[in-house]
Nucleic acid binder design. Sequence first.
DNA 1: GTCTATATGCTGATAGAC
DNA 2: GTCTATCAGCATATAGAC
Lengths: 211, 211
Amino acid sequence: MTSANQVKKNGNIRAKSQVKILTAARTEFVLQGYRGATVQSIADRAEMPKANILYYFKNKENIYHAVLEHTLEMWDEGIGDIEADKGPKVAIEKFIEAKVRMSFKHPEASKIYAMEIIQGAPHLKDYARTYQRQWVREKAKLFQQWIDNGEMANVDPVHLIFLIWSATQHYADFETQILTIMNRADFEEDDVQQVITFLCDIILRGCGLIK
Amino acid sequence: MTSANQVKKNGNIRAKSQVKILTAARTEFVLQGYRGATVQSIADRAEMPKANILYYFKNKENIYHAVLEHTLEMWDEGIGDIEADKGPKVAIEKFIEAKVRMSFKHPEASKIYAMEIIQGAPHLKDYARTYQRQWVREKAKLFQQWIDNGEMANVDPVHLIFLIWSATQHYADFETQILTIMNRADFEEDDVQQVITFLCDIILRGCGLIK
DNA sequence: GTCTATATGCTGATAGAC
DNA sequence: GTCTATCAGCATATAGAC
């Protein structure tokens, strides 16, 4: 076996192990919180010895950082952006749909983010201060232009973004409560579609974009 | 001092200490999570020796139970109910206002509840299954009557409740993120009023209750 | 009721054999 | 790369003096 192949094979093992660890860790961090999730519990869930976990990530905080980063990346990619070119109605519709679908598909991603923010965002202050604040300002400006052009009702653009965020992520973060109240074991595609329809209906009408 | 007075005095000390402990514990549980909050950190925040904490509550889990119970009670009392007698517009308006005000006044109450639900509601399954499910069904029926009478648009009543919950609690749970994005140190009464106006505007129009 | 001292178990992390 | 053995520190909780 050549040295190049050796590296590749080892790289594969490394990559696979890391994904396995991150997946297990994400679940543990959601279920138990940062402090409550132990390296041992992550190891058990990943079906690896504890020492291997620490071999790949050195320490617990590094695991958490990797989970956060991995999660935010996946989330942002899955949502995409608000598209300006087709007007406010399509833009808001598409954005709501993407966020609702992600909430049902990857509730853990939203949950881990939510817990981080609730606890005061100790690892994400910079993320909000730079990336997110900029994003909100950009989109708010876009909404304001549509409002000024008379294309939608005069509603506060920043709070509109908060409303869409909260209403959509609620189905991920409060999954447990919603299932219990609706007396259901799982969600199905029909439920997802119904939520999309409901939220688009209310919010678009609320923005004066449908009658 | 008579025996009755002795009991009363001791009762006062006990009650005061317990409130002090519960307040400190709530903050610690929010900031650090259940496992991350230590009895010592609660004692430090309450400015009491650790042993006194355990004297009053026996163990850490009892503290958490008491915090949850105390918090839910306070929250429910502060919100009040959806009042049927003045029609959908006033009912929804009053409910949104009450929830927004509580979110800004007691964000920790909402946060501790949110963390509990996100982690799978291990201590609150029964609460959702009995009390909350019943409440939602009752209110959904009320909304449905208004819809059938043509008093409001035909929107799913259960999801409408979820929308109001999520949109209002967002200002408590995601306080940190919102402050950072808005580049503010604290909220003021004007902010609260603006949120109430915004949410009533969008949701009432979304329900066809204003033009 | 208050507080110090301490028992007991679990945690993150490391050393070193394979 | 994998895994066993182990350490040092910290957590909850209790015992018992005051």
